[in-house]
């Protein structure tokens, strides 16, 4: 699962819907893989406006990536900065969580990730 997708996922448990702790999910015991992908700057610019930068900073720190700048780059900055674009591409698109767990910060529910597929099935009483 891409780090980008993780930036959009919240806890699926009903009681967590109203809590701000349920986002982002915290990766735990994760095995990362890197998948070579072509850089698509238009896609990255489009998606970056919707990325929650604060959550991404947290996730990057938890996965052991170098610290990100405090504010997200504007589309103009990104267009002019080849290195920045490449780094963001590596973090958001190429880095994938292969095995591990995603933990909700509110209810503590652990979502297992196996072979890159996260399991979001819940027992009926949590829906």
């Amino acid at each position: 699962m891409k780090v980008l997708t993780l930036n959009f996922l919240t806890c699926a448990v009903k009681a967590c819907k109203s809590s701000s702790d349920s986002f982002p999910l915290h990766p735990k015991d994760c095995e990362l893989v890197s998948d070579e992908l072509e850089v698509n700057s238009a896609l990255l610019t489009n998606v970056l406006t919707r990325v929650d930068w604060k959550a991404l900073t947290t996730t990057a720190a938890e996965l052991g990536f170098p610290t990100l700048p405090a504010t997200p780059p504007t589309p103009e900055e990104l267009a002019g900065d080849e290195k920045m674009l490449k780094e963001l591409h590596t973090l958001l698109m190429e880095t994938q969580i292969n095995e591990g767990k995603l933990v909700c910060g509110h209810c503590g529910h652990e979502y297992a990730v196996k072979e890159g597929i996260a399991n979001f099935l819940l027992p009926n009483h949590l829906v």
């Binding site: 699962m1 891409k2 997708t5 959009f8 996922l9 919240t10 806890c11 699926a12 009903k14 986002f23 489009n46 919707r50 929650d52 072979e115 890159g116 597929i117 996260a118 399991n119 979001f120 099935l121 819940l122 829906v127």
Partner: peptide, 27 residues
């Protein structure tokens, strides 16, 4: 899907239990 090596991210989830993404995630 894994064997076919598709490019998208996959999730095992029941859509009848909701869609666990934060607001405004998708185009």
């Amino acid at each position: 899907a894994l064997q076919r090596d598709v490019e998208g991210d996959l999730m095992l989830a029941d859509i009848g239990q909701g869609v666990p993404f934060r607001a405004g995630s998708f185009d």
